[in-house]
C-alpha cells in the first residue's frame, strides 16, 4: 500500500511538469500542442543518452534543451510556415518517433540500471539518514517548486503579459506593438522544455526508457489539467499553478484507486480519454440543458 502511495506521489509530481507545460500552451496561449507525446519521449531519451555517457547532472539541462528545440520547430511551423497549429503538433510528433530512435542509437530501449544519475547520487548521499526512503520525492518536489516559482514570476513580466494577451485577445495583440509570432514561439519553447523535463525525470527515476514512454501523455496531462481547471474560478496565477499539481494528484489517485479495485492497467489510457471527453463536454451540455428542457416542454404542451 505504501509503495502505491509513494508511486502515485512520484508520478503526480513528474506528470505535473507536463501539466504545467500544457498550462502555458493550452490555457495561457490557447494553442493545443499535440507534439507533447513525442517531446516527452525526446526528453527521456536525451536524458538517458547523456546520463549513459557519464554526465548525470548534464542530463537535465540537455533534456530541457531538446524540448526547446522541439517546441521551436512546432512554433516555427505554425507562425512562419502557415501550418495549422494542431497539424504542426501532429507532424512534429510523427517525426519525433524517428528522432527518438535515432537518439537512442537505433534501439527502442535503453537501460540505466547501473548508470549514475541525480537520483542514484542523492540516494547514496541520503543513505542512513531520515530522507533515505523518500529521496526521489525530494528531487521531484524541488524541481516542480522551481518550475512553479519560475512560471509565477514569468507570467507577470512584460513578455509573460504579452503571451497571455496573445491567448486572450489576438485582435488586440495584432494592433498593439506585440508580434504574436514571437510570443507563440517563446511560449511553446518554454512549454515543451517542461514537457521534456517531465520525460527526463520519469526515465531517470524508473531507470529505463523505451520508445513508448510518452504514448498518450498528452491525453493524461490534459485530463489532469482539466481537473485542475475546476478549481480556478478567480484565483491568482500562483494558485492556478498549484492547482495544476493538485489536479495531477487527483487524477493519479483515482487511477491508483481503480488499480486497487482490480482495474486492468491497460485501461489507463481509456480512462484518461474518458475524463478529457467528459470534462470538456460537461460545461457545453450544461449550457444547452435549459434549451433542451424548454423544447421538451413545448413538445409536451403541443401534444
Amino acid at each position: 500500500m505504501s509503495t502505491l502511495i509513494y508511486t502515485t506521489l512520484e508520478l503526480s509530481l513528474i506528470g505535473s511538469l507536463t501539466v504545467l507545460g500544457l498550462y502555458l500552451s493550452y490555457i495561457t496561449l490557447n494553442v493545443c500542442d499535440l507534439s507533447t507525446d513525442g517531446c516527452f519521449t525526446l526528453g527521456a531519451t536525451t536524458a538517458a543518452v547523456v546520463a549513459l555517457s557519464g554526465h548525470p547532472y548534464l542530463a537535465i539541462p540537455a533534456a530541457m534543451m531538446s524540448g526547446i528545440l522541439s517546441g521551436l520547430v512546432v512554433s516555427l511551423l505554425q507562425t512562419y510556415f502557415g501550418v495549422n497549429s494542431l497539424l504542426s503538433g501532429i507532424i512534429v510528433n510523427t517525426a519525433l518517433y524517428s528522432v527518438n530512435i535515432a537518439v537512442m542509437g537505433n534501439s527502442s530501449l535503453l537501460n540505466l540500471n547501473k548508470t549514475k544519475t541525480i537520483y542514484s547520487i542523492l540516494k547514496d548521499l541520503s543513505k542512513d539518514t531520515l530522507f533515505q526512503s523518500f529521496s526521489f520525492l525530494i528531487i521531484e518536489a524541488a524541481i516542480v517548486a522551481l518550475v512553479i516559482v519560475f512560471l509565477n514570476y514569468f507570467l507577470k513580466t512584460r513578455i509573460g503579459l504579452a503571451i497571455r494577451a496573445t491567448g486572450d485577445n489576438p485582435i488586440m495583440v495584432q494592433a498593439s506593438s506585440i508580434d504574436p509570432k514571437i510570443t507563440t514561439i517563446i511560449a511553446l519553447c518554454i512549454s515543451n522544455s517542461f514537457t521534456a523535463l517531465s520525460g527526463c525525470l520519469l526515465c531517470l527515476s524508473q531507470k529505463s526508457v523505451n520508445i513508448d514512454i510518452g504514448n498518450g501523455m498528452v491525453t493524461i496531462a490534459l485530463a489532469s489539467l482539466l481537473i485542475s481547471r475546476i478549481f480556478y474560478k478567480n484565483s491568482s496565477t500562483l494558485k492556478r499553478l498549484l492547482y495544476c499539481v493538485l489536479g495531477t494528484l487527483i487524477f493519479r489517485s483515482v487511477y491508483a484507486l481503480a488499480l486497487r479495485m482490480n482495474m486492468p492497467a491497460y485501461m489507463l489510457k481509456f480512462v484518461s480519454a474518458l475524463i478529457v471527453a467528459i470534462t470538456i463536454s460537461i460545461p457545453y451540455i450544461r449550457s444547452k440543458l435549459p434549451l433542451y428542457k424548454r423544447k421538451a416542454e413545448i413538445r409536451r404542451s403541443s401534444l
Binding site: 513578455i159 497571455r164 494577451a165 498593439s176
Partner: peptide, 25 residues
C-alpha cells in the same frame, strides 16, 4: 477588441506602457 478580457486593468495598461525590459514586472 482593444483589451484582453481575462487580464487585469493594470496588466492591460502595463502591456501598452512598454516600460522597462521584457523581463520587468
Amino acid at each position: 477588441a482593444g483589451t484582453a478580457p481575462h487580464m487585469s486593468v493594470e496588466e492591460n495598461l502595463a502591456m501598452a506602457f512598454k516600460n522597462g525590459s521584457w523581463l520587468s514586472r
